[in-house]
Structure formats: C-alpha cells, structure tokens
C-alpha cells in the first residue's frame, strides 16, 4: 500500500512570532523554520505503518519555496522513501493546496493520505477535509489511533467531549491529532541515507490547476496585550479579591 504524506515548512513552534511593523504579515526573515509538528506526527504514523508491513512506499510531498526541500529531507530521514516538491514562493490558500495535492494523488494513486490536522502558521485546519471533498473520498480527521486492514482504516478521532471511532473505506484521507504518536528523531545514518533519496521538483504550472487567491490579507496586527495584575500574599486575600471582582 502506498501512503502519501503532505508536509509543510513553517516557523518553528518554539519561535516567538513577531508581526511586521508595516502590518503586511509576520516576520519570517532569519527565523528558524521546521516541519509543521502535526505533519511530523503524520510522517511518523506512515513510517510505523511501513514498519508493520502495512505500507510499502511512503511519498512525502511539500508545496513551498526551494528550502522546503529541507522539510522533505526531514521526512526522508524519518523513513519516507521519496519526495515531491511543488516549488512556489507564493503563500497558497488551502483550496489551492488541496487542488494541487489532488493532482499529485491522480498521478501517484496512493491508497492512504496521512497528513497533519492543521499547520501552525495559518491555523486553518482545512486542507485534508478539502482534499477529501475534491476527491470524493471519505475522511477521518483529528486521529488519535489508526489501524489499517482489509482495504479499510479504523480511526479513533478526538471530538468534543471524548472519542469517536469511524471506519473508512480506502482510499481515504486521515488527519493527525497530537496524541496519535510521538515522532522519532532521525538517526545520523538515516539523515545520511536521506540525502541519497530522490526528490522530484515540480512547479505549480505542471498541474494545470487554478491556484489564484480568493482571500486578500488587508492587514496583520498584534493582538491586544493583556496587562498583568497584582500578586496576592495568601489564599485569603485571593478570595477577597475575587469577591471584589464579582466572579465568586
């Protein structure tokens, strides 16, 4: 079974985000970039499926600037077999990304797409669901457990108030939530091996897909800052203050 894993290069999750003074966006110059944490979890899950003998080939796909090759290399070092980079300097919306990935899926014909539930830059939480709709495939989002057998995936999902289990017929889209697994660190030998694995570089025009934006960013601003309050000396004083504030 072939598994396709889309991965995104984003600002590292430990970096403090700074809004540009001209309000055009977030300052990404000289900032550490990494693989989106949810994408890392998806890669890990794909590699575990391969280790179990369920998956036979893992293809990592990224859409982004030339440097997104590094993100694909990270996936290859974790255990993916080959990569595809659709190179673009434009910041594409989920709709355009979903259309491009649909085109890649048309060529690659994977039986399972494993991907992160959201990227931590745009926080849209949309691309997986959109791909599923465009392909007419079933989806199982926010997965905390995935089992694949007999042409089906049984997926436990994180929902409000608890967990839900769905069985989806393959091919299907599964998006990873935090608790699905703990991604491995790539070993040095595997990092060296990953350098020899192939990455196919394409451009958005290779797929004949309309990627024009539908949304215009008018401005990006800092959220209002919350002023700090006071320190209280004791639980007694705390309860007094909370009564004064009218919240007890």
């Amino acid at each position: 079974m072939k598994v396709l894993v889309p991965v995104k290069r984003v600002i590292d999750y430990n970096v403090k985000v700074r809004v540009k003074p001209d309000q055009t966006g977030v300052d990404l110059a000289n900032v550490k970039m990494s693989m989106n944490p949810f994408c890392e979890i998806a890669v890990e899950e794909a590699v575990r499926l391969k280790e179990k003998g369920v998956a036979t080939e893992i293809v990592a796909v990224s859409i982004g600037p030339q440097q997104a090759q590094e993100t694909i290399r990270t996936a290859l070092a974790m255990g993916a077999d080959r990569g595809i980079l659709i190179q673009t300097d434009d910041d594409l919306e989920p709709l355009a990304v979903a259309k491009l990935l649909k085109a890649v899926i048309g060529e690659e014909a994977p039986e399972l797409v494993l991907m992160g539930k959201q990227a931590i830059d745009g926080d849209n939480n949309a691309t997986g669901q959109m791909m599923a709709a465009l392909l007419g495939w079933p989806q199982a989002t926010f997965a905390s457990k995935v089992e694949v057998a007999d042409g089906k995936a049984t997926v436990t999902r994180e929902i409000d108030g608890g967990l839900q289990t769905l069985e989806v017929a393959l091919p299907a889209i599964v998006t990873a939530d935090l608790r699905l697994n703990e991604p491995r660190y790539a070993s040095l030998p595997n990092i060296m091996k990953a350098k020899k694995k192939p990455i196919d570089v394409k451009s958005t025009s290779d797929y004949g897909v309309d990627v024009s934006p539908r949304l215009k960013v008018l401005k990006v601003t800092e959220p209002p800052k919350r002023a700090g309050g006071i320190k209280v000396e004791s639980a007694e004083q705390l309860v007094g203050k909370l009564k004064e504030a009218g919240v007890l």
Binding site: P94, L95, A126, M130, A132, A133, D160, P213
Partner: peptide, 23 residues
Amino acid sequence: ATATGKNAAPRIAAALDVSPISE
C-alpha cells in the same frame, strides 16, 4: 469552530469551490 464544525466546513467549501474562512 468546534471539532464537528471544523470537520465539516472545509468539505463544504471545497465542494462549492470557495476558500473557507476559519475561526
């Protein structure tokens, strides 16, 4: 923008060929 809403809304957006607007 609950687990249920986030699960369904983008599917509908894609079916209508529009960019969803999240949260």
